[in-house]
Design a binder for these strands. Structure first.
Length: 617
DNA sequence: GCCGTTTTCGGCCCGACTGTTTTCAGTCG
């Protein structure tokens, strides 16, 4: 396992996993093995790049990274390698560290395969393993058989496809798919309750498989009904407690069924996250309790499986009582990532300070300040599809008080300055007329623009144009590869303009397509706090940007955010809920989110000044 | 190796599934 100086979190996670695997093969203390494994998972899920934490000497802030591992990582960042790890890897075939990345192969199998098949070097190791499997050599190894050989072939295929990382659905897509199936499951009377589970229930930005649970007294009927779902491509697995299918669109759906009396424990268990559940069980253990998907029992009772469901197990119909039994307040699924929510829930239950936040909700949202209409102002890119009027109708139906029309700026290359000013005057007049025409309806329309931030940090409209607008959303739409320093300078220069109130989709990421650009968040957050600028939580499905971890940072520092949909059609206005989900995952309360304010306050905040009487009446 | 309002020593999450097994080891979530 080679190490290089500039490793990212994923690579470091793999390195730690390799150390764990090496220790396991060498029969090192099992808790040491587990410690490295835990650290690997923690690094994978870390919300900051370790390199940055190392710069700030904060490596030990990652849970499960203690003195020893931090010291090793320090050596890694300083010298590009870790002598101790090299010692650990000594005597083990490089190839095994390739193999452990294949689903279904753990350290022991990886080692055995590498040794017996004499595949030692990392290069081409997986290809050689595949050849060995296909020629039937693996089935002959003791402990392996035909089936494991086949499984390895499947595993390699999945690995090569990158099935683990890519190919994830974005949250809104998965959510809608799940709700179709949930509606179907609700059609039969045996279905008492149906929920999403796993990352979907926790509202993670990207989802692998769809997990759904049903409370039912007749599990077999429910499962049969599920397996009769019309859009099934194939049935992968059918058991007593659930089933797995592949849909026609290639997506995997797992169903879990449970009787209503144990439903709460099951819901809790399969919602995860894994880290959250592990931490819960550790706490339960100290209270002499053991948790499982069936309920809570005293640890003194080591019952064999057939005694499951004996009265000694305390069952839970819902999750609230489950958490209560552990001495904590109910934890919303969005927070269950073991990033401090358990400690907060314990404090809250004891009536102490520092409890769980009261999370912002969709119903708190009073308006959307980033939508695009089809008004003709010859924008540089991506015009909206629907009229101002229809967007407003939809917004009113959603219960909003205001909308901000933020079309892209007219392209600078195609227009003279005067043309741009004329187009923006036309837009201002249109908007004002619109406000004026809504005599008795209390609904307001802001006149805004989403302006490109040029690589220099200049804004892509003429200086005179600023006076024609209520506020500006500044966004990066080009040159994503600038260095962190240059990008930070670029963004801060744009934010410094007094009309700029919002930094649009702040990291520029496109889920599954493009990593975000790098920014010095210390500086950006500091600037926003000091000068009262808002970071956008863009709810568009492949953006969900700010990411939840940065929302959390912003919340910690008191930087305000605004949840916008970036809608280009009326239908997209209802994407707001996914932006709210991101905010929740970042622990945001109503007060952290600017567009929970009613119109009057919003108006003051963006320094529009009170609207003139003519435009208000 | 990590971690701590019951501990700086002495613990460390739980169960299912699979495949290969005559009683269990490895992997996964």
């Amino acid at each position: 396992m080679k190490t290089t100086k500039k490793m990212n979190n994923q690579e470091i996670s793999r390195l730690l996993k390799a150390v764990s695997g090496a220790y396991e093969v060498k029969k090192e203390n099992q808790f040491k093995v587990a410690a490295y494994d835990k650290a690997a998972v923690a690094v994978e899920h870390a919300t900051s790049e370790l390199k940055d934490l190392w710069d700030d000497k904060k490596l030990e802030e990652i849970p499960s990274v203690g003195k020893s591992i931090a010291a090793h990582l320090d050596e890694l960042f300083r010298t590009g390698k870790v002598k101790h790890f090299e010692q650990v890897f000594k005597g083990l075939p490089e190839a095994m560290f390739e193999f452990i990345n294949i689903p279904g192969i753990g350290p022991k199998s990886a080692y055995k395969l590498a040794i017996i098949l004499k595949i030692t070097v990392a290069k081409q190791a997986i290809r050689k393993l595949l050849l060995a499997a296909k020629s039937g050599k693996i089935a002959q190894i003791e402990g392996f058989g035909e089936k494991s050989q086949k499984q390895i072939i499947e595993g390699i295929k999945a690995y090569q496809k990158g099935a683990t990382k890519q190919n994830r659905m974005n949250l809104p897509y998965a959510d809608r798919l799940a709700h179709e199936i949930m509606a179907y499951l609700s059609l039969i009377p045996e279905t008492l309750r149906v929920d999403t589970l796993g990352s979907l229930r926790r509202k993670v930005a990207t989802i692998g498989d769809i997990d759904i649970s049903v409370a039912t007294r007749k599990p077999d009927k429910t499962i049969d009904w599920f397996l009769a779902y019309p859009k099934i491509h194939k049935i992968v697995e059918k058991g007593l407690s659930g089933a797995t299918i592949i849909l026609n669109n290639g997506r995997q759906v797992d169903l879990r069924v449970q009787g209503p009396d144990s439903y709460g424990a099951m819901l809790q268990y399969f919602t995860g996250s894994k880290q959250h559940n592990i931490h819960l069980r550790e706490i339960a253990l100290k209270k002499g309790l053991s948790l499982s998907e069936y309920g809570i029992k005293p640890t003194s009772l080591r019952q064999p499986a057939e005694l499951r469901g004996s009265p000694k197990i305390q069952k839970f119909t819902g999750e609230e009582k489950f958490y209560q039994r552990l001495g904590m307040a109910y934890i919303p699924p969005e927070l269950r990532e073991d990033t401090g929510e358990i400690e907060a829930a314990l404090r809250q239950a004891k009536g102490k300070e520092g409890g769980l936040p009261k999370l912002v909700e969709l119903k708190n949202i009073k308006g959307d300040l980033h939508v695009h209409s089809n008004i003709q102002i010859e924008e540089s890119h991506d015009p909206g599809m629907d009229s101002i009027a229809s967007m407003v109708e939809k917004a009113k139906a959603l219960g909003y008080e205001y909308l901000g029309f933020s079309e892209h700026n007219p392209s600078q290359s195609q227009h003279q300055e005067k043309q741009i000013l004329d187009l923006l005057k036309y837009k201002k007049e249109t908007i004002e007329q619109y406000n004026y025409s809504r005599v008795n309806n209390v609904f307001y329309v802001f006149n805004s623009l989403e302006v490109d931030i040029k690589p220099s940090g200049e804004l892509a409209i003429p200086e005179k144009a600023f006076d024609l607008l209520d506020y500006i959303i500044a966004s990066v739409h080009s040159e994503f590869n600038l260095s962190r320093e240059k990008m930070t300078k670029r963004v801060l220069r744009a934010l410094a303009h007094p009309k700029v109130k919002i930094l649009g989709h702040p990291t520029g990421r496109l889920l599954g397509k493009r990593e975000g650009y790098e920014l010095n968040w210390e500086e950006v957050l500091g600037f926003c706090l000091k000068h009262n600028r808002w970071l956008e939580i863009n709810a568009f499905p492949d953006r969900l940007d700010l990411p939840d971890n940065l929302v959390r940072e912003a919340v910690k520092r008191g930087v305000k955010m605004i949840i916008n949909t970036d809608s280009h059609t009326t239908a997209q206005l209802s994407l707001m809920e996914y932006g709210v989900d991101v905010a929740k995952r970042g622990w945001a309360t109503k007060n952290d989110i600017a567009n929970t304010q009613p119109y009057d306050k919003m108006c003051n905040e963006i320094k529009k000044g009170p609207p003139s009487l003519t435009s208000r009446l």
